[in-house]
Design a protein around this nucleic acid. Structure first.
Length: 275
DNA sequence: GCCCAGGGAATCG
DNA sequence: CGATTCCATGGG
């Protein structure tokens, strides 16, 4: 990973990395756009301000240690997205979709945080999901420099539905508590899921109340880095009927999750363009 | 199989 | 403006 250090900032090439596409695409819910090409958020218990300018990405006020130990992994900077895109773009539709959304990177987020977040995401919209998660962190997360960390499973496992009332999470509150208990007492072991193949990993996660196929696949893609996980929401179901009635082309399956992201945003952009 | 849960955003009339 | 629709999952 090539970088340069300028004052307290770390700067990299923004090749295959669009901040807005990556941070505002519904894979993570704790990033806020605070200006043109400037985002702030908290991940892995750290606050970060990150911006882009003139083909560069700038990690503000970041130590080399945090960059190397946290952010390279989180933003998946050692993965060659150019090569993956080349593979996927052999398909015509994917090639067009890639032109719209080719700057998306799949973040390597915390597994527990991701499962919990996508349970909250079910039957819900992004602004409200962000609100519930923000209140979850403020109420139960550790105070850190710049905000609140995502609460641990241990911090939530002994809570009642009434305790979670301030979140206004609705019927999802009971699922959050059930999930926290399963993570806290090792009924769910992240390492087992990480080392399992997609189908098995899915079945493990779906033992959690509130985790169906869609939530499981989102968690596996965004929290367990299973790039072949292919979450099917209503948008993607439409895309599949329209372009791939017989399924994704075989060569795209191993990177199905990345393809899903390109197609998802392509379809939504086209919808907006038509208006 | 069908309806509902709990809520706010988006869209419609 | 108010009314309606949307959304993923589990339980009755």
């Amino acid at each position: 990973m090539n970088y340069e250090i300028s004052k307290k900032n770390i700067i990299i090439d923004a090749k295959d990395f669009d901040l807005e596409q990556t941070l505002d695409c519904g894979q993570a819910f704790r990033w806020e756009k605070v200006g043109n090409n400037v985002f702030e958020g908290i991940a892995k218990g750290r606050f970060l301000r990150i911006s882009s300018k003139d083909g560069k990405i700038i990690f503000h006020n970041t130590s080399l240690q945090d960059f190397e130990q946290i952010w390279i992994e989180y933003f998946d900077l050692d993965t060659d997205y150019c090569a993956i895109k080349q593979k996927l773009c052999a398909d015509k539709t994917l090639s067009v979709a890639c032109d719209y959304a080719g700057g998306i990177r799949i973040l390597r987020q915390d597994a527990w945080e991701t499962v919990c977040s996508f349970i909250i995401s079910q039957n819900n919209n992004i602004p409200r999901i962000k609100g519930i998660i923000a209140r979850l962190c403020e109420n139960f997360g550790q105070k850190i420099d710049g905000g609140y960390a995502f609460p641990t499973a241990q911090a939530l496992c002994d809570k009642s539905i009434e305790d979670l009332a301030p979140l206004r999470a609705g019927f999802r509150a009971k699922y959050i508590i059930d999930t926290a208990q399963k993570f806290a007492d090792n009924q769910i072991v992240c390492d087992e899921i990480l080392s399992s193949e997609l189908e098995l990993a899915r079945n493990i996660l779906m033992k959690i109340k509130g985790v169906g196929p869609k939530v499981a696949d989102c968690a596996l893609l965004f929290g367990f880095y299973k790039l072949d996980a292919f979450p099917k929401d209503v948008w993607i179901k439409r895309v599949m009927e329209k372009y791939y009635p017989d399924g994704l082309p075989e060569f795209a399956v191993e990177y199905g999750g990345i393809a899903q992201q390109y197609l998802f945003h392509y379809e939504r952009m086209v919808g907006k363009d038509e208006k």
